[in-house]
Design a protein around this nucleic acid. Structure first.
Lengths: 244, 244
DNA sequence: AGACGTCAAGAGCAGTGCTCTCAATTGTTG
DNA sequence: CAACAATTGAGAGCACTGCTCTTGACGTCT
């Protein structure tokens, strides 16, 4: 029951500001519960107000609109996923690049299966009429891919990543894009591996989305852990790791 | 009533039935427009009624609920995608397996980019509180994957599909699942290739979803056609096709 | 022609997001 | 400590949603 965590972030000297920050935190917490149980589109400010024991209009003192609450929950979910991934990756030895890659994939899947509605908010169909404000969401929203890029680039620099023998053609227009990416992130990885890395990225989330969104159907696969681990192994090979 | 239900599909003799079928078709058409422009969660029966020039309660004579209209639109979209894929695949020579695979992928992407909201309804986060009735949606919903499986199995039987030299391990529990799939669909493809095919399947839709749902951000890639074609080429290699 | 089935309309219920006004609480300051 | 002012919660209200029920009119079939 310590509010040290709340006041540690920023200086909240006046009691007013502290109470206000606490109320906003409560709203986000209740909103997260509603989001997790009832889904994104069913998120209702009035329901949050009821749980908060307050009339609906009072919530608008703290949150400008339903969309703003959605943005707060979006950032909240992105950061929770990013924290989980970073923790799992850091738990592996620095030089175990393949292990770190596998940890990233497994953690994304675990979190997604644990929080399907919030995963759907992040990586599913966009909420109609809602446009995420780039200024607040891009930084937390890019944490996982940045971590993945970091693993692959470090592995490449360490000589643990080998370009596939039969690489697909990279046309000039795409090569220009990949050049921009390499320059923007300061990477050493060559074109073919960046392109493969993008495919690995989308494929990872494609596999997770299929499972979370129920595209496999109820009884197509029973050994889903093994299926995903197999996919991860294939994707590791695609990324350039030597499959043992 | 069983006779009427049986003949409902084939012939609509009475003017009543014809008028009724026409009205339902109009509702589906208007609903498809709303779905395409405003998104799935924003689909409103009242808005459809307004466009139909009728009071809202009248629509319930033809469609039991909003969810039932959603089901009709789901089947409609699945079939439109399935028709587009089948047409594109059939346009390639029977023996051009790699070409048929590429046609399938390109058509899925084209349709998804043309109909982002409807694609989101099919492959995005599930609509909260809506459970698609399996009896009506599984058959149209499995058309694309069945077509893909057909291409891969035919290619394998023709000797055009070679298992990758460094295959990932298929644990026994997963092998049992794959055995069920092979038996249920009457396939000849071995375990490793089925597992890779599943990954190709999820990866294809993962890449499309990333693009449709805007996960790349506004300016990460400008040569998206080339990027997707590169991904398709890599996935073709993953499926067992010999990359030229 | 009469009976039956079908249909559109309207009112109404419960819920939503959001805005406005008004009164009360609460922290700050003279 | 008391007065002031900022902040807050409550309530009413608007426009919208899905959905139900009743009522009256219409078409169709016997």
């Amino acid at each position: 029951m310590s509010d040290a965590a709340a006041s540690a972030e920023t200086t909240l000297r006046t009691p007013r500001e502290r109470a206000r920050a606490q109320t906003i935190a409560d709203i986000v917490r209740l909103g997260r519960d509603h989001l997790a149980t009832h889904g994104a589109a069913a998120l209702s400010l009035r329901a949050v107000a009821r749980d908060l024991g307050v009339v609906s209009s009072a919530v608008y003192r703290y949150v400008a609109s339903r969309d703003e609450l959605l943005t707060l929950l979006l950032v909240d979910a992105y950061n929770e996923l990013g924290d989980a991934v970073d923790a799992a990756v850091s738990a592996r030895p620095e030089g175990d690049f393949a292990g770190r890659f596998a940890a990233l994939g497994l953690t994304v899947r675990d979190w997604a299966l644990r929080e399907p509605a919030r995963y759907g908010l992040l990586f599913g169909s966009p909420v109609p009429g809602y446009q995420a404000p780039a200024g607040q969401t891009t930084t937390p929203g890019t944490r996982v891919i940045y971590t993945l890029v970091g693993i692959l680039d470090t592995a490449y620099r360490a000589g643990s990543l080998t370009a596939p023998e039969r690489a697909a053609v990279v046309p000039p227009a795409l090569a220009a894009d990949l050049d921009m990416v390499r320059g923007g992130l300061g990477l050493a990885v060559p074109d073919g591996l960046i392109a493969s890395g993008v495919l690995v990225w989308t494929s990872l989330f494609g596999a997770v989305s299929f499972e979370v969104f129920g595209q496999y159907g109820p009884d197509m696969f029973s050994a889903r852990d093994e299926l995903f681990e197999h996919h991860l192994a294939v994707l590791a090979g695609l990324a350039g790791f030597t499959v043992g």
